[in-house]
Simulated assay, not measured.
Amino acid sequence: MTPPPFDPELAPVIEALRALRPSLSRLDEIPGRRELDAADNWTLEELAAAYPAYRVSEEHAGEVPLLVLRPAESAGVLYYVHGGGLIAGSHLGQDARNALAWSGEANLTVVSPGYRLAPEHPYPAALEDCHAGLLWTAEHCAGPIVLGGVSAGGGLAAALTLLVRDRRGPALAGQLLACPMLDDRNNTPSAVELDGRGLWDRTANTVGWTAYLGDRRGSGEVPAYAAPARAEDLSGLPPTFLDVGAVETFRDEVITYAHRIWQAGGDAELHVWPGGFHGFDSLAPEAKISQAARAARLTWLRRLLGQ
């Protein structure tokens, strides 16, 4: 199989990023990846200085830290779950700024949970932390709640949406899933054909899912709350926005998830960005395709919230 090409503006970016941050291949490489990601973390004071229109604080849902960014007037909440392959990342990392880029023009409060990471804390630790944070959000923040996330955070957001559907609350206005990590089986055509390309390939994906699920990965013992692509029933979900690059591991599992929501009678908007690699819009923000991706999310958010 011949994989599709990268977007011309993105091709030199992906080569430079791969040189700086090689793909994971073993569990013992996780500490090094965390150190790289931690270099992007900001303090609360730095966030407050960079975003003076927001009141910045860190709250807690039990032992789960929550980054909370409140605009002067809030039209609702984006409950945003950070990425990192289930093994890295932070609620104080680059994703916090991504969430503001998603929500700022829609005047949404952002709440982002600092969930526990695998392999030290395997499934269901991350999901339980995200659920605790969502319950806190429903109690302490006014307005409709949109549940969102990127990469592993998108997968956790999708799993959390299934969980609150089945537990009948709290109510969600929608879910926004950017290049979500949905399927531990890791055997779609895009996963196979793109192994060795991009920033998060099939090999790295195996590391992340193995850290989270252990020996259950790829078996019949994986529940939908761990890997949402395993869900037998996708009915009763809130309006859903999904996007993914055409040149990334998760392309086909995201497309399949959107189709299955439609087949269950649901409302889903799907964007497959030609030439896009995993996380392209935040890693190459000036590219035309990145600007288009951010604009599409904002348009969907505004329409969802009646703006």
Rank of each mutant, 00 (worst) to 15 (best):
T109V: 08
Y257E: 15
P71S: 12
A173H: 14
A258L: 10
S282N: 14
P4T: 14
T256K: 08
P31F: 03
E248G: 01
A48G: 03
A118F: 00
I87C: 15
G89L: 13
N186V: 00
G174K: 10
V164F: 05
S74F: 06
P5S: 13
V111Y: 14
A287P: 04
G266F: 04
T109E: 05
A53F: 04
E120Y: 12
R251C: 08
G306E: 13
L127S: 02
A96H: 15
L24R: 04
R185E: 02
V77N: 01
L304S: 15
L237P: 02
E29F: 07
F277D: 14
G155L: 02
P144E: 07
A226K: 08
G265E: 11
E269A: 02
L270M: 06
F280C: 09
L182K: 09
A159M: 14
G196Q: 06
Y54R: 14
E15W: 01
V244R: 06
S282H: 12
Y80V: 01
V111N: 07
I14D: 08
E73M: 02
Y225Q: 02
H271I: 00
E73P: 07
G214P: 13
S290W: 12
L86N: 15
L162R: 05
A50W: 12
L305K: 03
L36M: 09
A49W: 02
E269S: 06
G198P: 00
A224V: 09
R34P: 05
A132I: 03
R297C: 09
T109I: 07
V111T: 12
Y80T: 05
A50R: 14
V254P: 09
R116D: 07
L78A: 02
A178F: 14
E105D: 12
D40F: 09
